[in-house]
């Protein structure tokens, strides 16, 4: 199985440790992983702002970099969703369609494709799981609280394999954190209030760490936590799933 590693731009630039953890998890599973070094971004920041027409070149670049893999794995629900829903390339329309189908978010990949049953990792902390909306409602990584359907959660299931990790309960288990791409600056007041409320739900239930499948949400929550001088930290789920027992 030939895996292409898709590392979103802000993870590449600001959170390289998340990319490293993702790569190491996949390598430990014995997979052949390649990171195409000319990748940049999926184009979502422009598209969600109403500038989808400016994503032609980023999309073309994405297709050029990723057309030769069996799966494209990405440690972000949001960027994965954007590729799945919106990737177009006029020069290679079929390749774009094929990439849409092959792009998979990390926890989904581990659960559905690799069917991971156990992990030799430990993380002795109280952890709150922030369900990012694009991962949850876009990709269906877990059951959504609005629907009347049987519960499941791919990220939670993986976290349950982590030794000594204690997953805390939340009052509102899948409320949006308010990041929302450029929403976080154009609607600053509401964005921050949503983030503060999300943080409070985790801290009141004793979380030491807030984790999730999207570093963008976590970056927003981290900004709020640090402004509050809180001891609570954010950590991407890949970093927890890469906490190899020593």
């Amino acid at each position: 199985m030939n895996i292409g590693l898709f590392i979103p731009c802000y993870i590449d630039q600001l959170y390289p440790q998340v990319g490293i953890a993702t790569l190491q998890i996949l390598e430990r599973l014995g997979l052949s992983v390649t990171y195409p070094t000319n990748q940049t971004c999926c184009g979502q920041p422009m598209a969600n702002s109403g500038f989808e027409h400016l994503t032609k070149d980023t999309s073309h670049n994405f297709v050029t970099n990723f057309s030769d893999f069996d799966y494209i794995v990405c440690p972000s629900g949001s960027c994965t969703l954007h590729i799945k829903d919106h990737l177009h390339d006029d020069a290679n329309p079929d390749k774009a369609i094929s990439i849409r189908k092959k792009t998979v978010e990390l926890t989904e990949f581990l659960t559905d494709i690799i069917k991971v049953k156990n992990l030799d990792v430990h993380f002795p902390h109280k952890v709150g799981l922030h369900q990012s909306c694009h991962g949850l409602r876009g990709l269906g990584l877990a059951q959504m609280s609005e629907l009347i359907a049987p519960p499941f959660s791919k990220p939670e299931n993986l976290l349950s394999m982590v030794k000594r990790l204690e997953l805390i309960d939340l009052e509102r288990k899948d409320e949006c954190c308010g990041f929302g791409g450029t929403f976080c600056v154009f609607e600053e007041a509401v964005s921050v209030k949503m983030g503060q409320d999300r943080v409070a739900d985790h801290t009141v239930h004793g979380a030491e760490y807030i984790t999730g499948v999207d570093m963008s949400c976590l970056m927003h929550l981290d900004g709020i936590l640090r402004r509050q001088k809180s001891n609570v930290k954010v950590i991407h789920i890949a970093e927890i799933l890469n906490s190899v027992t020593k």
């Binding site: 590392i7 993870i11 590449d12 630039q13 600001l14 959170y15 390289p16 998340v18 990319g19 490293i20 790569l23 990171y35 070094t37 976080c184 600056v185 154009f186 600053e188 921050v192 983030g195 970056m219 927003h220 981290d222 900004g223 709020i224 640090r226 402004r227």
Partner: peptide, 27 residues
């Protein structure tokens, strides 16, 4: 004037990108 910074700390700057780490450690 940065609306991000008004009520949130900036992300801490990283010393490397994943891309350079990858080029140094895997390629």
């Amino acid at each position: 004037f940065n609306p991000w910074y008004k009520q949130r700390e900036m992300p801490e700057a990283s010393t490397t990108s994943f891309n350079s780490w990858y080029q140094n450690n895997r390629k």
